[in-house]
């Protein structure tokens, strides 16, 4: 059975790049992998989703995750996280950046941004200040890499595969910072797991 990772966010946040990184790491690790997304209109600040499907025991057929079959929802924006939780399996896990980006309907006052969006996402999931931490490191746009670091704790892919994927996708001058953010995300997720086990 493939492991299904749905990545969601706002056009321009690096969802497509994040999906590329996961898929590339899986390929390097010798897994079967497929990835799907939509380009074009969706990139102009609209909702963007990317599907990544990884298998270690047999082929991946459809590049699209069937409804309700996502094992992980990676959200780079809270409202986009809420929009896609229905795709999760009952035991599916959310990893979300706590960033809020108001859609045009909210900016102009014709709709309300959902109240306390992090609450339902944090139930059985992890909400991180990824953009804030990436901003402190000088690359706010690398929030996606930090969140992937957190995801990496749950995927059975060797560290070397992630590192090679990062080196292949990220520009050389930002590579070291991105590696640091990846580790930071990983540490946050491990810390949370340990706390859960201790408690």
């Amino acid at each position: 059975m493939p492991e299904n990772i749905l990545l969601a966010g706002v056009g321009g946040q690096g969802i497509v790049t994040a999906g590329d990184l996961v898929a590339q790491a899986a390929l390097i690790a010798g897994r079967q992998v497929k990835k799907a997304e939509v380009h074009g209109m969706a990139q102009r600040g609209g909702s963007v989703v990317s599907h990544v499907r990884i298998s270690s025991d047999g082929p991946v057929y459809s590049p699209m995750i069937p409804d309700g079959h996502a094992d992980f929802l990676i959200a780079l924006e809270l409202l986009e996280g809420l929009r896609w939780t229905w795709m999760l399996r009952p035991a599916g896990r959310v990893i979300a950046d706590d960033r809020r980006v108001a859609p045009s309907s909210v900016s102009t006052g014709s709709a309300e941004y959902p109240a306390q969006p992090e609450k339902p996402l944090a139930e059985g999931g992890l909400v991180l200040p990824a953009t804030q931490l990436a901003g402190q490191a000088g690359v706010p746009r690398a929030a996606n890499v930090l969140v992937l670091g957190a995801l990496s704790v749950h995927l059975d892919l060797p560290a070397g595969a992630w590192d090679e994927a990062l080196a292949g996708v990220i520009k050389t001058r930002h590579l070291e910072t991105n590696r640091g953010l990846f580790r930071a995300g990983r540490d946050l997720a491990l810390e949370r797991l340990n706390r859960a086990t201790d408690g």
Partner: peptide, 18 residues
């Protein structure tokens, strides 16, 4: 059957001019 119902009432996010 619907696995989990899609959320209702969330503000949509259509593409916009940059």
């Amino acid at each position: 059957g619907e696995p989990t119902p899609k959320p209702r009432g969330l503000p949509p996010r259509p593409p916009v001019l940059c």
